[in-house]
Protein backbone atom coordinates (compact mmCIF):
# COMPACT_ATOMS: atom_id res chain seq x y z
CA UNK A 1 0.00 0.00 0.00
CA UNK A 2 1.14 3.53 -0.72
CA UNK A 3 1.48 5.86 2.27
CA UNK A 4 -0.87 8.53 0.94
CA UNK A 5 -4.28 7.43 -0.30
CA UNK A 6 -6.52 10.03 -1.92
CA UNK A 7 -10.18 9.12 -2.22
CA UNK A 8 -12.17 10.84 -4.98
CA UNK A 9 -15.40 10.22 -6.83
CA UNK A 10 -18.91 11.44 -7.48
CA UNK A 11 -20.60 12.73 -4.36
CA UNK A 12 -22.73 9.89 -3.12
CA UNK A 13 -20.42 7.25 -4.56
CA UNK A 14 -19.57 6.12 -1.04
CA UNK A 15 -16.18 7.84 -0.82
CA UNK A 16 -16.47 8.57 2.86
CA UNK A 17 -17.49 5.02 3.80
CA UNK A 18 -14.64 3.67 1.68
CA UNK A 19 -12.15 6.15 3.17
CA UNK A 20 -13.16 5.33 6.73
CA UNK A 21 -13.06 1.58 6.15
CA UNK A 22 -9.70 1.77 4.38
CA UNK A 23 -8.23 3.64 7.35
CA UNK A 24 -9.85 1.20 9.79
CA UNK A 25 -8.44 -1.80 7.95
CA UNK A 26 -4.92 -0.42 7.75
CA UNK A 27 -4.86 0.73 11.35
CA UNK A 28 -4.59 -2.94 12.33
CA UNK A 29 -1.08 -2.91 10.83
CA UNK A 30 0.15 0.66 11.26
CA UNK A 31 -0.85 4.00 12.72
CA UNK A 32 -3.23 5.82 10.44
CA UNK A 33 -4.69 9.25 9.92
CA UNK A 34 -7.78 10.30 7.99
CA UNK A 35 -8.30 13.82 6.68
CA UNK A 36 -11.78 15.20 6.02
CA UNK A 37 -11.08 17.48 3.04
CA UNK A 38 -14.72 17.75 2.02
CA UNK A 39 -15.61 21.32 1.16
CA UNK A 40 -18.82 20.31 -0.62
CA UNK A 41 -21.05 18.36 1.76
CA UNK A 42 -22.53 20.03 4.81
CA UNK A 43 -23.65 16.71 6.32
CA UNK A 44 -22.72 13.00 6.15
CA UNK A 45 -18.94 13.48 6.29
CA UNK A 46 -15.93 11.80 7.89
CA UNK A 47 -15.93 14.22 10.78
CA UNK A 48 -19.39 12.90 11.79
CA UNK A 49 -17.68 9.57 12.66
CA UNK A 50 -14.85 11.31 14.52
CA UNK A 51 -15.56 9.75 17.92
CA UNK A 52 -15.65 6.14 16.76
CA UNK A 53 -12.55 6.67 14.59
CA UNK A 54 -10.57 8.16 17.47
CA UNK A 55 -11.67 5.28 19.70
CA UNK A 56 -10.01 2.97 17.18
CA UNK A 57 -6.82 5.00 17.39
CA UNK A 58 -7.25 6.70 14.04
CA UNK A 59 -6.19 10.32 14.00
CA UNK A 60 -8.82 12.59 12.41
CA UNK A 61 -7.92 15.84 10.71
CA UNK A 62 -10.98 17.97 10.09
CA UNK A 63 -11.79 21.63 9.90
CA UNK A 64 -12.81 23.14 13.22
CA UNK A 65 -16.00 24.07 11.38
CA UNK A 66 -16.82 20.64 9.90
CA UNK A 67 -20.29 19.42 10.99
CA UNK A 68 -20.94 22.85 12.51
CA UNK A 69 -23.34 25.57 11.44
CA UNK A 70 -20.59 27.70 9.96
CA UNK A 71 -21.16 27.37 6.27
CA UNK A 72 -17.76 28.02 4.73
CA UNK A 73 -15.63 25.68 2.64
CA UNK A 74 -12.72 25.29 5.05
CA UNK A 75 -9.86 22.81 5.36
CA UNK A 76 -8.22 21.46 8.53
CA UNK A 77 -5.56 23.87 9.79
CA UNK A 78 -3.19 20.97 10.55
CA UNK A 79 -3.49 19.41 7.09
CA UNK A 80 0.19 19.90 6.24
CA UNK A 81 1.08 17.42 9.00
CA UNK A 82 -0.02 14.75 6.50
CA UNK A 83 3.02 15.55 4.40
CA UNK A 84 5.47 16.74 7.03
CA UNK A 85 5.06 13.85 9.47
CA UNK A 86 5.54 10.68 7.46
CA UNK A 87 4.88 8.09 10.15
CA UNK A 88 1.28 7.35 9.41
CA UNK A 89 -0.83 5.67 6.74
CA UNK A 90 -2.84 8.59 5.40
CA UNK A 91 -6.31 8.62 3.88
CA UNK A 92 -7.54 11.86 2.30
CA UNK A 93 -11.33 11.97 2.00
CA UNK A 94 -11.94 14.54 -0.71
CA UNK A 95 -15.28 16.20 -1.50
CA UNK A 96 -17.42 15.02 -4.37
CA UNK A 97 -17.04 15.80 -8.05
CA UNK A 98 -14.49 18.11 -9.64
CA UNK A 99 -15.62 20.87 -7.27
CA UNK A 100 -14.47 18.84 -4.28
CA UNK A 101 -11.28 17.72 -6.03
CA UNK A 102 -10.25 21.33 -6.61
CA UNK A 103 -8.83 21.49 -3.06
CA UNK A 104 -6.19 18.94 -4.05
CA UNK A 105 -4.70 21.38 -6.52
CA UNK A 106 -3.34 23.39 -3.63
CA UNK A 107 -1.27 20.39 -2.50
CA UNK A 108 -0.07 19.53 -5.98
CA UNK A 109 3.57 20.34 -5.21
CA UNK A 110 3.46 18.25 -2.04
CA UNK A 111 1.70 15.33 -3.73
CA UNK A 112 3.19 15.09 -7.20
CA UNK A 113 6.40 13.44 -6.03
CA UNK A 114 4.89 11.75 -3.00
CA UNK A 115 4.19 8.06 -2.59
CA UNK A 116 0.46 8.17 -3.31
CA UNK A 117 -2.50 6.38 -4.82
CA UNK A 118 -5.57 8.23 -5.96
CA UNK A 119 -8.70 6.08 -5.88
CA UNK A 120 -11.79 6.70 -7.98
CA UNK A 121 -14.76 5.34 -6.04
CA UNK A 122 -17.47 4.30 -8.49
CA UNK A 123 -21.13 3.71 -7.84
CA UNK A 124 -22.57 2.69 -11.19
CA UNK A 125 -26.08 3.21 -9.81
CA UNK A 126 -25.44 6.92 -9.36
CA UNK A 127 -27.11 9.12 -11.91
CA UNK A 128 -24.60 10.57 -14.43
CA UNK A 129 -22.04 7.85 -13.64
CA UNK A 130 -23.78 4.76 -14.92
CA UNK A 131 -21.76 3.97 -18.04
CA UNK A 132 -18.02 3.55 -18.54
CA UNK A 133 -17.91 6.64 -20.76
CA UNK A 134 -19.75 8.81 -18.23
CA UNK A 135 -17.38 7.63 -15.51
CA UNK A 136 -14.28 8.28 -17.62
CA UNK A 137 -15.50 11.81 -18.42
CA UNK A 138 -15.97 12.33 -14.71
CA UNK A 139 -12.48 11.01 -13.96
CA UNK A 140 -10.96 13.45 -16.42
CA UNK A 141 -12.84 16.35 -14.77
CA UNK A 142 -11.52 15.31 -11.37
CA UNK A 143 -7.98 14.98 -12.75
CA UNK A 144 -8.07 18.41 -14.34
CA UNK A 145 -9.41 19.99 -11.13
CA UNK A 146 -6.87 18.24 -8.88
CA UNK A 147 -3.90 18.26 -11.32
CA UNK A 148 -3.31 14.65 -10.19
CA UNK A 149 -3.79 11.30 -11.90
CA UNK A 150 -6.24 8.68 -10.71
CA UNK A 151 -4.30 5.44 -10.19
CA UNK A 152 -6.88 2.91 -8.97
CA UNK A 153 -10.57 2.11 -9.30
CA UNK A 154 -13.00 0.96 -6.63
CA UNK A 155 -16.35 -0.65 -7.39
CA UNK A 156 -18.71 0.51 -4.66
CA UNK A 157 -21.90 0.14 -6.68
CA UNK A 158 -24.84 0.27 -4.30
CA UNK A 159 -28.46 1.31 -3.81
CA UNK A 160 -28.07 2.00 -0.11
CA UNK A 161 -30.37 -0.35 1.87
CA UNK A 162 -31.72 -1.86 -1.36
CA UNK A 163 -28.32 -3.13 -2.55
CA UNK A 164 -28.26 -6.71 -3.78
CA UNK A 165 -25.29 -8.84 -4.95
CA UNK A 166 -26.69 -8.45 -8.50
CA UNK A 167 -26.47 -4.65 -8.24
CA UNK A 168 -22.81 -4.90 -7.20
CA UNK A 169 -22.05 -7.46 -9.93
CA UNK A 170 -23.65 -5.31 -12.65
CA UNK A 171 -21.50 -2.44 -11.38
CA UNK A 172 -18.44 -4.69 -11.60
CA UNK A 173 -19.02 -5.09 -15.34
CA UNK A 174 -19.09 -1.31 -15.79
CA UNK A 175 -15.97 -0.82 -13.65
CA UNK A 176 -14.19 -3.60 -15.57
CA UNK A 177 -14.97 -1.70 -18.77
CA UNK A 178 -13.55 1.49 -17.24
CA UNK A 179 -10.47 -0.52 -16.22
CA UNK A 180 -10.07 -1.88 -19.76
CA UNK A 181 -10.44 1.54 -21.37
CA UNK A 182 -8.15 3.40 -18.94
CA UNK A 183 -5.65 0.67 -18.07
CA UNK A 184 -6.20 1.34 -14.37
CA UNK A 185 -6.49 -1.61 -11.97
CA UNK A 186 -9.56 -2.31 -9.82
CA UNK A 187 -8.19 -2.01 -6.30
CA UNK A 188 -11.29 -3.21 -4.51
CA UNK A 189 -14.83 -4.40 -4.85
CA UNK A 190 -16.66 -3.20 -1.77
CA UNK A 191 -19.88 -3.86 0.07
CA UNK A 192 -21.31 -4.98 3.37
CA UNK A 193 -20.34 -8.47 4.51
CA UNK A 194 -23.66 -10.04 3.56
CA UNK A 195 -23.40 -8.69 0.01
CA UNK A 196 -19.73 -9.59 -0.48
CA UNK A 197 -20.31 -13.13 0.78
CA UNK A 198 -22.60 -13.71 -2.21
CA UNK A 199 -20.11 -12.46 -4.83
CA UNK A 200 -18.72 -15.48 -6.72
CA UNK A 201 -15.00 -16.31 -6.68
CA UNK A 202 -14.82 -15.66 -10.41
CA UNK A 203 -14.69 -11.96 -9.49
CA UNK A 204 -10.97 -11.54 -8.94
CA UNK A 205 -10.82 -8.02 -7.51
CA UNK A 206 -9.74 -7.79 -3.85
CA UNK A 207 -12.65 -7.33 -1.47
CA UNK A 208 -13.04 -4.66 1.15
CA UNK A 209 -15.84 -5.33 3.59
CA UNK A 210 -17.58 -2.14 4.72
CA UNK A 211 -18.85 -1.40 8.22
CA UNK A 212 -21.25 1.47 7.63
CA UNK A 213 -20.71 4.70 9.53
CA UNK A 214 -22.91 7.28 7.80
CA UNK A 215 -26.25 6.20 9.20
CA UNK A 216 -29.60 8.00 9.06
CA UNK A 217 -31.37 8.67 12.36
CA UNK A 218 -34.23 6.24 11.61
Amino acid sequence: MKRINIITGHFGSGKTEFAINLAQKQTMYEKSVIADMDTVNPYFRTNDARKSLEEKGIKVLASDYASSNLDIPSLPSDLYSLFDVEDRFAVLDVGGDEDGATVLGRFYNKLKDADYDMYMVINARRVLSQTADEIITFMREIEVASRLKITKLVNNTNLSVETTPEVLLEGQKVVEEVSLKTGLPIAYITGTKEILDKIPDTVKAPRLCLDLNMNLPF
Binding site: F11, G12, N123, R125, R126, V127, Q130, N158, L159, S160, E162
Partner: peptide
Amino acid sequence: MSEKVLMKGNEALAEA
Protein backbone atom coordinates in the same frame (compact mmCIF):
# COMPACT_ATOMS: atom_id res chain seq x y z
CA MET B 1 -33.65 5.99 -16.33
CA SER B 2 -36.12 3.18 -15.64
CA GLU B 3 -33.98 1.13 -13.26
CA LYS B 4 -33.42 2.31 -9.73
CA VAL B 5 -30.59 4.75 -9.11
CA LEU B 6 -29.13 6.20 -5.94
CA MET B 7 -29.64 9.94 -5.68
CA LYS B 8 -29.31 12.74 -3.23
CA GLY B 9 -32.67 14.37 -2.47
CA ASN B 10 -31.61 17.68 -3.98
CA GLU B 11 -30.46 16.13 -7.27
CA ALA B 12 -33.49 13.87 -7.45
CA LEU B 13 -35.92 16.76 -7.18
CA ALA B 14 -33.99 18.68 -9.85
CA GLU B 15 -34.14 15.70 -12.20
CA ALA B 16 -37.84 15.23 -11.45
